[in-house]
């Protein structure tokens, strides 16, 4: 009979069988990536983040929000009734890295956008217990005081472009974005206009209630307010999403 000892004492067998085991694991992990086009739902409206939202996302990650909040509504009745429509793969296609998570100390945030007012978010981030008495979330008062560092926004967008987010640098890329997302969105994705776009959105949105400065709060609230709002679910039959599985 083939004994474990045979493998442990024979380098040739060990190499062959190790490769075989890794090969199976690799196939299971890698092959589906080639079919990813069929896995990601084709839906309208999903776009990369604007410069301000992207900076907000960076702050979300910096402050470790993901350690307590997931961004993934699972396809279960209780989750759907509490949070809204389950998350689609398409909705995080421009997230690097995605924020799905599996640790929910706080509630899921995948459909937070538009649920509460900007004022609520500011109040809640500065002093969570003033609006949710039973909350155990820490206070983040510095977000309101710290000015947003916008000096490196183009570099950040370029880095994301390297991993596949369609921010545009050249005229051809810009035109492709106009084709794909429409003119208004394409403008926001233009790396050459990143700084002015960021400032314009922060000023017109006035997310932190303070018009004079662009704070980290502006960016974070802008990001939170766009979460899960890009797809209009009233346009699709549930059957459409089932067919992607």
């Amino acid at each position: 009979m083939f004994k474990h000892e045979t493998v442990e004492t024979n380098a040739g067998w060990l190499i062959i069988l190790t490769l075989l085991a890794i090969g199976v694991g690799g196939l299971v992990e890698i092959v589906p990536l080639y079919m990813i086009d069929e896995t990601v739902e084709k839906v309208e409206g999903v776009r990369p983040y604007t410069p301000l939202e992207q900076r907000g996302r960076d702050i979300y990650i910096r402050e470790g929000c993901y350690t307590c909040h997931s961004q993934m509504i699972r396809p279960f009745r209780d989750e759907m009734m509490r949070y809204g429509h389950y998350s689609l793969a398409a909705e995080s296609q421009y997230d690097h890295p995605f924020q799905w998570g599996s640790k929910r100390t706080g509630p899921d945030l995948a459909r937070l956008g538009g649920k509460y007012s900007n004022e609520w978010h500011v109040q809640h981030l500065v002093a969570p217990r003033s609006v949710v008495p039973e909350s155990i979330m820490p206070n983040y008062p510095w977000l309101l005081e710290d000015k947003l560092d916008i000096s490196d926004i183009s570099d950040r967008m370029k880095a994301l472009k390297l991993v596949g987010v369609p921010y545009s640098e050249t005229k051809a890329e810009f035109d492709a974005n106009v084709e794909k997302f429409g003119k208004d969105v394409a403008e926001m994705l233009d790396i050459n206009k990143a700084t002015e776009n960021l400032i314009a959105q922060a000023q017109s949105g006035n997310y932190d209630g303070n018009k004079s400065d662009i704070t980290e709060m502006d960016a974070l609230v802008a990001y939170l307010q766009v979460l899960g709002t890009m797809v209009d679910y009233s346009k699709y039959d549930e059957e459409y999403f089932v067919n992607f599985r």
Partner: peptide, 19 residues
């Protein structure tokens, strides 16, 4: 049942189970 009220039968998957 899909949104139009028609019955749809599909292989087992979590999305159909949710529907």
């Amino acid at each position: 049942e899909n949104d139009k009220g028609e019955e749809v039968t599909t292989h087992w998957n979590t999305r159909a189970l949710l529907a």
